[in-house]
Design a protein around this nucleic acid. Structure first.
Lengths: 207, 207
DNA sequence: GTCTATAGCTGGATAGAC
DNA sequence: GTCTATCCAGCTATAGAC
């Protein structure tokens, strides 16, 4: 019986490994051809199999996008959760922004699949989406450590950083024209949201 | 001779009008199906002609995208150049941001085609691109009226506003979760860039 | 300029042998 | 699970009659 169980595990492991190899090939291909340029024929060729064999592992093309999303979201969450070099809240926040930016500019396809909705009929499954939710929750905590707890300030934060990344990826791919503005943008954001010094504008701004 | 000239003008006008009608149909279709979902068959059907006839007006599909880009860029530039309701520089700047946001959220396809690069092999021609350059120049002037002249602050401005629009379009289409943060973001931006009050941070920040 | 007809290709997905 | 062979649909673009 242990033999049977072992065999089952072994097959399971092999299957998972083949599964992963296909997603590897998919990301490698998408990195070159763009997210929309992914075709099952090319994918199979790069993975060293034939197109129908892909269907032994994935039900449809969207299932492949979903697995790609899940993989990328997990990698992203792990990267964002790694230990930070400082325990100064401001520095942690800035470093998280730099990590986000590096992750996105490292491959435009990652940014498009994870943070924009550019594939026509594709919606990530809840399981694939879970790591992204976890990452957002960590961002909320990092802001809280800086004394920022309002929901709309979290939205302003995500808009501020994705805006820099978006401009970078769209208008200066491979460069740093916008990403080099991250630190100054973080300063601007904190100066606005942190009520440490005397209130600059007496008009009420609560939501 | 005047007859011939008149006939030529007339034909030219008719041709331009048919040209425009096709681009009308293209935008109407893209609004429903998404930018990538544009096909010449559907386009022709909506324009009341057949697919080959489209080639009497455009050399290729990318030529159609280019004409769509040109049309949208012109409309955008005109909208942004319309008279502003106030002559307070700050209010003009905020109104320009609201106009930009309304233009983009009005149709995600406009935003994608004009401000992102989501179509694989497409690059706008210089003629189609010209109005966009003009608009950016106007933005630079509006910032200058607010005492903001540094190049990197223009980049921060575009990132700030496109970030809000991008988050709005990607994560809350049809809503106002991010666009309602425009005014506060403008405040934040001006407070940071305008050196009116006492310098907040003595560290040098010149570029 | 507009049509019908169709070429030529590529896409996702399936059938069925092994 | 993997293959060959194939289906069927969609696409851009062209040929040629009118």
């Amino acid at each position: 019986m242990t033999n049977i169980a072992a065999t089952t595990d072994w097959r399971e492991a092999r299957r998972r490994s083949a599964h992963n190899a296909i997603i590897d090939a998919a990301w490698s291909l998408v990195r070159e051809e763009g997210l929309a340029g992914l075709s099952l024929r090319d994918l199979a060729r790069r993975a060293g199999i034939t197109a129908p064999t892909v269907y032994a592992y994935f039900d449809s093309k969207n299932a492949i996008y979903d697995a790609m999303f899940g993989r990328a979201a997990t990698e992203f969450a792990e990267r964002m959760a790694e230990p930070y070099g400082s325990d100064n809240p401001r520095e942690v926040l800035a470093e998280s922004a730099r990590r986000f930016s590096q992750f996105c500019t490292n491959s435009q396809a990652h940014y498009q699949l994870l943070f924009q909705r550019t594939i026509p009929g594709f919606e990530p499954s809840p399981e694939s989406y879970a790591p992204a939710v976890r990452s957002l929750s960590l961002a909320r905590e990092r802001l809280a450590l800086n004394g920022i707890t309002k929901a709309r300030h979290l939205d302003m934060w995500t808009a501020l950083i994705t805006g820099l990344v978006d401009q970078q990826v769209s208008n200066d791919p491979g460069g740093d024209r916008w990403t080099r503005l991250i630190d100054e943008s973080v300063d601007m954001f904190l100066a606005h949201c942190q009520p440490t010094r005397a209130v600059r504008k007496p008009t009420s701004r609560r939501t």
